[in-house]
Design a protein around this nucleic acid. Sequence first.
DNA 1: GATGAATGAGCTTTCATTCAT
DNA 2: AATGAATGAAAGCTCATTCAT
Lengths: 214, 214, 214, 214
Amino acid sequence: MNPLVARKKLGRPCAVDPGETRKRLILEARRLFAEIGYDATTNRLVADAVGITTGAIYHYFPSKKEMYIAAYAEVQEMVYGALENAVAGQEVFVDKFSSMLDALAAISTQEPSFVGFVVGVSAESQRHPELTQDLRSLRSRTVKFLHEICEEAVRNGEVNEGITGQLLHDMIDVVISGLSRFSHVVDDADRRRNVVDGLKLLMAGTLLRSPVAR
Amino acid sequence: MNPLVARKKLGRPCAVDPGETRKRLILEARRLFAEIGYDATTNRLVADAVGITTGAIYHYFPSKKEMYIAAYAEVQEMVYGALENAVAGQEVFVDKFSSMLDALAAISTQEPSFVGFVVGVSAESQRHPELTQDLRSLRSRTVKFLHEICEEAVRNGEVNEGITGQLLHDMIDVVISGLSRFSHVVDDADRRRNVVDGLKLLMAGTLLRSPVAR
Amino acid sequence: MNPLVARKKLGRPCAVDPGETRKRLILEARRLFAEIGYDATTNRLVADAVGITTGAIYHYFPSKKEMYIAAYAEVQEMVYGALENAVAGQEVFVDKFSSMLDALAAISTQEPSFVGFVVGVSAESQRHPELTQDLRSLRSRTVKFLHEICEEAVRNGEVNEGITGQLLHDMIDVVISGLSRFSHVVDDADRRRNVVDGLKLLMAGTLLRSPVAR
Amino acid sequence: MNPLVARKKLGRPCAVDPGETRKRLILEARRLFAEIGYDATTNRLVADAVGITTGAIYHYFPSKKEMYIAAYAEVQEMVYGALENAVAGQEVFVDKFSSMLDALAAISTQEPSFVGFVVGVSAESQRHPELTQDLRSLRSRTVKFLHEICEEAVRNGEVNEGITGQLLHDMIDVVISGLSRFSHVVDDADRRRNVVDGLKLLMAGTLLRSPVAR
DNA sequence: GATGAATGAGCTTTCATTCAT
DNA sequence: AATGAATGAAAGCTCATTCAT
């Protein structure tokens, strides 16, 4: 047989780098899930982005669901890691909140959709009951983080009377998820920065007792 | 053939009311699109809810896309109609904002997902580029409503220096979309009411000049 | 547009006959499941045999499993119907058995694999646990038929001492399933007929007390 | 490099024993093919049972088909070896038959599915035409064994008039395959033993001339 | 001798859409 | 105005097989 004739291109093609594919896979999955959601992220889309076939995905994850869970876990880790870092040096609640917004803004600039991924997970969980269980256990771990901050603010008398930890938590939730959707949709970096600053001002207002006046 | 003899049950099965089916169709489509999103809302789901077959949908809409557009238009109309009503009697921005939040809360109680539908449309638009064009033209009409309110607040000197109409608009966007996601995900009516009240307090604070002090 | 140009061939193609496709579908499914088993019978194979696409199958059955159940139910009905007919006019066990063999032989000639389908179902059930439940309830109905015949033979003293109804049933099971496999594999009609006659002789022997001697 | 330092665990991981893997592979393949059939027996299932990867299978067999052929050949050898042993000391056909049934029962107790494997091969062959050729040549060798026994019985006048060797062979086929299916499906050891005894009685009856009366 | 990464074909299933009736 | 049969494309997933290492 003529050795110059191209052979069948089956089997593993001169591996680019062991472990490299896995990284690329998680990376692209993360990106796609974050950007267009669970349904719209088809295996083919992910595979094409990585440069493999859809079957190869199952070498790394037993199902699309698991791939999603893995991607979410990583992103959640990133986001909440950044948030924990952000509040680490801060004493009072307003400063913690400010730092968190800055941290979120920073992430949103690098990977515009990651914050939205974390925030949007509860909607995805409603649409896909199969995900609920796994997502809940993942989330419970980090929900406590915000909970703690809010309870502390209440204990320290940093909020007006009648404001409970629960309410403070819910309001932060509203602001953060609103911000993440905004960042996901709006490209203009200036507007994003301005909004972050605006929200800091907002939070520094009536809702909280002035720290100096305490 | 004797017209008194019952005919075969072919063709249109004695439609309950002409135009009735159309209404039911839009109603159920609205509900489903709002609740579970574009992808998860299959034609069959809508048809079953109405009590017709999937084929019959195409008597009313040339495609699923158009049905979505129509549903969105109606919901948008409802929501923004309510908002316009809400601000009608109010002079100052803070009061307008308060009234709007109340209006949104009222809608969220009746049809929990409609506000989220309007807000979430931009995400759906990213997932489904085919929708983008039609949605944009729909939205442009109502975007002006908030724009006008914000510009007026700036003109009237109701906001602190450095706050532009654009920024005010963006921040309202953030708060409203955050609230709508919250309402979609949280069932507890008390928590929802509390959050609305909290947001009113928030907005009445530092960000804006105190009306009395003006 | 030139009306001579062929249009897209979507939608329902001038229906051959309403209800006709359903019949063909069940027919071919029956044949294929009986001949090559559950796994080897792909939706494509069935669809091609009928002349439709694989998707159309789901118009008639919600899943491949249900299609199998339906096919099995029909075949079981046929086979056991024939068996019940066969034993109807017979008084003594040996004659019942003879008639049953003749009935099975007749079916095997018309549809060579139907008897094997009924017999092979327990193996298929082991391979596919999802089928077990539905199959069991179907089978329980007809298992009683053989059970009754065997118990009656014991009650009437037609079998040697020590032979229980259970054992008689099991042996008939062995012979019938053996015969069905044989008929499935051997094409030669003469050999099949001879084997049936041979089995009659076999059963007329020592195992049972001689009817005359009773 | 210091040979005492543990090496990387690449390449062949200190194979327990050369040739050992091959044995284990055939063993597990045999078991799985016999138990759940050709289709349901995936390479992965076999590989996992052995403790290797699917790729490694191809060091021992060029394809799944060949693995099946090999497994079948071994089992056939075992079963027919046992049968040959069983008939070795017997003079008359009825005794040979009895001994064979006992041998089959013994195998069925140890490896419940092996007899069924041998018997079921013709069905598998119909499902998978690719197997037909190879299986036929394998089977032809051992088919002669039963053929010889039956012809001898006819020559020795052990059967009633009109019973040919072919027919006797076919009937044994029916009984043996029926028994094997029964053993595969029924777990109860008592029932299995009883059926074997029942079949011996059956065969000792009318069909054959009574040896004493000869 | 064995792994592990990858392929390509095929499977069951879903779905928007079409169209004769 | 509506049904019901059918399509074709695509989805998630499995599997035998290949091959660089």
